[in-house]
């Protein structure tokens, strides 16, 4: 099992519903977020191109946060997801400094917090909150080891990219372009 997520940058309208859905589902403290929307504008007027990306933890295969964690609080879980055990986390901040995507934040309770791919929902057969909420249906989540899953099919048929592949992290968050 290899969980991954793909976001269609051609369909995303940047409404931030995914952000609010995540904050509600996961009780994310005010002022923080586990996912966020990035708006990248390229070119010179009038030849402009805009890309909208709903970003979150990339659940990297080669995760620097898991490597640098001194207690093992940051760890690999089901389907390659990267999770944090709050009771093992000392809040040293090493994982926050190690993440090239800045996907982690210090929770007011002391531990570090981040996207979990909503594993608690996935285990019940549901989609992650952001995916389930997206009004344009621009997000896909599933198992890459299953060739018939939505995500396997969409990544086979569409052009895609990952963020900073040169960082060597092998991210599992794909952007359809």
């Amino acid at each position: 099992m290899r969980y991954a997520m793909a976001i269609d940058t051609k369909k995303c309208v940047g409404c931030s519903d995914c952000v609010v859905a995540c904050q509600t589902e996961n009780n994310v403290p005010i002022g923080h977020c586990r996912d966020w929307v990035v708006e990248v504008l390229d070119g010179t007027y009038p030849q402009l191109e805009m890309e909208l990306r709903s970003e979150r933890c990339c659940h990297c295969e080669n995760a620097p946060c898991v490597r640098c964690c001194p207690t093992g609080a940051s760890h690999k879980s089901d389907g390659g997801t990267v999770l944090v055990k709050p009771h093992k986390c000392i809040g040293c901040g090493a994982c926050i400094a190690s993440c090239p995507y800045d996907a982690r934040y210090p929770h007011p309770d002391g531990h570090v917090d981040k996207c979990t791919f909503c594993l608690h929902r996935v285990k019940e057969g549901l989609q992650p909150a952001c995916v389930a909420t997206c009004p344009t249906k621009c997000m896909y989540f599933g198992d890459l080891d299953n060739p018939r899953s939505d995500i396997s099919r969409i990544l086979k048929n569409r052009k895609w990219k990952t963020l900073i592949p040169e960082a060597g992290t092998n991210p599992q968050l794909y952007f359809l372009i």
């Binding site: 490597r67 640098c68 964690c69 001194p70 809040g91 040293c92 090493a94 929770h107 002391g110």
Partner: peptide
């Protein structure tokens, strides 16, 4: 003082993680 979860500092000494410089330091 730098730790956000100060009361849990002893978790550093429950494991040895060779890939983590902070574990080496501890």
């Amino acid at each position: 003082l730098d730790l956000n979860h100060k009361a849990y500092f002893w978790q550093l000494y429950t494991t040895i993680r060779l890939q983590s410089p902070m574990s080496w330091g501890a």
